[in-house]
Amino acid sequence: RKEMTAACTPRRRIINLTSVLSLQEEINEQGHEVLREMLHNHSFVGCVNPQWALAQHQTKLYLLNTTKLSEELFYQILIYDFANFGVLRLSEPAPLFDLAMLALDSPESGWTEEDGPKEGLAEYIVEFLKKKAEMLADYFSLEIDEEGNLIGLPLLIDNYVPPLEGLPIFILRLATEVNWDEEKECFESLSKECAMFYSIRKQYISEESTLSGQQSEVPGSIPNSWKWTVEHIVYKALRSHILPPKHFTEDGNILQLANLPDLYKVFERC
């Protein structure tokens, strides 16, 4: 597991931080080997919608929660590849102030007048994250320049770009939802926020969305749709870069829909 690298990086740093090793061990302890084997050997059937997909393993048909699986995938990559990410360069710098204002204007932020003026909160978020810029760049390849612009994001899987519609809320939550006081809790909560931002979430995906850094293989055609990215990038990574937690067998994120021999018997009677 320590050699797990989802995106190509030129050289690998050895990380011996106790906090990170502890988080890696927790993933191992909570892992479910049968689910790992199923995901490793599954045959992708198709997307139901951005949140759900169908896959077959041996004779069984499964309904998989793409949102939760991708979130767990990105969390584990962030923990196992800690401080070893490439950088996704933004085509132009994104001012943190503008991103924070967009987030505060969104109902998702939960902002009320009692929280104070949005401009003041946005300025605080910019200054707060600028103070964390060195650590964010060093460990997470999340790059913020001296003017308070976001200029780079971590490359977690080759050819995958997170849904940038979720970027404003991500920046807001970096400042408000991460435990910045304790090292282990900081790395864990920061990785979880980043994983949620990178995950496939239906509120940020339309039929026209593209999450891939590449064009489709047909010359002159439109960019790959999110469905292509889910199948050929995300579920491909799920084959080798995730140890599913045991609770996925109990919380409805992986559901067995049918045993195909039983279905064949039904059709034979028709």
Score class of each variant (00 low, 15 high):
L121G: 07
L64S: 02
H57F: 07
G152Y: 03
I144D: 02
L23K: 02
G252T: 07
I205P: 03
P163R: 12
Q203A: 11
K132D: 00
L155F: 08
V45Y: 06
Y80K: 11
N41F: 07
H40R: 14
L69H: 01
N84W: 02
L164W: 12
T66D: 01
L35P: 03
E92G: 10
L243F: 10
E119G: 10
H32E: 13
N159G: 06
P244A: 03
P245Y: 01
G152L: 00
R36D: 03
L238F: 09
S109D: 05
L61P: 04
G252N: 15
E185K: 11
L21T: 04
F44H: 02
G46I: 09
E193W: 03
L174Y: 02
I151Q: 11
V161H: 13
I242D: 01
V230K: 01
E92F: 08
N16H: 09
L102D: 13
P93N: 06
N65M: 01
S225C: 13
T210Q: 07
L238N: 00
A53C: 07
G31S: 12
V48F: 06
F85Q: 04
Q76N: 00
S189G: 15
M196S: 09
V87A: 07
I233V: 14
G148R: 06
L238Q: 00
S221P: 14
E134I: 09
V266L: 13
S141Q: 09
A100N: 03
M101T: 08
D158K: 12
F128C: 11
Q24G: 04
L102F: 06
P93K: 07
E165H: 06
P223W: 14
E127R: 12
D262Y: 12
P10R: 04
L102Q: 14
P107M: 13
R11M: 11
S240E: 14
C8I: 06
E268M: 05
M4F: 11
G116N: 06
L153M: 07
C8H: 07
K246M: 09
L260R: 10
Q58M: 14
E183Y: 01
A103W: 03
E127A: 13
W111G: 04
G152H: 09
S22L: 14
V218M: 13
G46Y: 08
R239Q: 05
S216P: 14
K227F: 04
P163L: 10
S221T: 13
S19T: 08
I14P: 09
W226D: 00
I169D: 12
V87P: 15
T67C: 04
G86L: 13
A103H: 04
L61F: 06
R89M: 15
T66N: 03
S22Q: 10
E250M: 06
K132Y: 05
E147W: 08
L164G: 04
N49V: 05
L155D: 12
I242Y: 04
I254P: 01
V48N: 00
W226K: 02
R13I: 08
L255R: 14
S189M: 11
I200T: 04
I77D: 01
K130A: 13
L17D: 05
N224V: 15
G120D: 09
R201W: 00
E165S: 10
N253G: 10
G152S: 11
P95Y: 11
K265W: 10
A100S: 10
P223Q: 13
R239T: 03
E127T: 11
K192P: 02
P154G: 01
I151N: 13
E33L: 09
L142Y: 02
I125C: 11
Y124Q: 13
L255T: 13
D115Q: 10
C47G: 00
F140E: 00
G46E: 12
H247D: 13
S216N: 08
V34D: 11
G252F: 04
V87L: 08
E185I: 10
F170P: 01
T59P: 03
I15S: 05
S43L: 11
F44I: 04
E268I: 05
D181Y: 08
W226N: 00
E147H: 10
E26P: 02
L156R: 01
A83N: 04
S19A: 07
H32L: 15
F248E: 00
Y204N: 04
L54S: 03
E182S: 12
R13S: 09
V161L: 10
E72L: 04
M135C: 05
A103I: 03
I200N: 03
I222M: 13
D251M: 05
G213N: 13
M38Y: 03
A94D: 05
Y75G: 02
P261D: 13
Q215Y: 10
S206W: 08
E71N: 05
N224K: 14
G46K: 15
R89L: 14
H57Y: 14
K184E: 07
E113R: 07
L99T: 06
V48D: 01
T210V: 08
E3D: 15
Q51K: 08
R11S: 09
F140G: 01
S199N: 00
R13G: 06
L21W: 09
N179W: 08
G166P: 04
L17K: 06
K246Y: 11
P163N: 08
H241L: 06
K184I: 07
E250Y: 07
L174P: 02
D181M: 15
L172E: 04
E72A: 13
N41A: 10
T5K: 04
C47S: 09
L104H: 03
K2S: 14
G166M: 02
L63I: 06
E114I: 15
H232A: 04
K246L: 11
W52D: 00
S221E: 15
H40I: 12
T112N: 09
V45F: 06
E147R: 09
L129G: 01
K60R: 12
E123W: 06
L136N: 02
I242R: 00
K265L: 05
F197T: 02
G46A: 10
L63M: 09
V230S: 03
L104Y: 13
F82K: 00
D145T: 07
C194F: 12
D158F: 06
E3S: 12
E183G: 04
E193G: 02
W111Y: 12
T249M: 13
L23R: 02
L99I: 10
C186G: 02
L243Q: 13
G152T: 11
P50N: 03
L174Q: 00
H42P: 00
S189C: 11
T229Q: 07
L17R: 05
K130P: 04
E113D: 10
K131M: 13
Q215G: 15
L129A: 01
K132Q: 09
E217G: 14
F187K: 01
I242W: 05
Y124I: 12
K192V: 06
K184G: 05
V126T: 14
E114V: 08
E177R: 06
K192Y: 07
S91G: 13
H247N: 13
T176Q: 15
A55P: 01
Q214T: 11
L153Y: 03
E146F: 10
S106V: 09
K265I: 04
Y198G: 02
A122W: 00
V161G: 05
L164F: 14
R89F: 14
H42E: 05
Q256G: 07
I151F: 13
R173G: 04
Q30Y: 08
F267G: 15
V34K: 07
L172F: 14
L61K: 04
D105H: 09
G220L: 11
A83D: 04
R269L: 05
F97N: 12
L255E: 06
R201A: 01
Y198F: 12
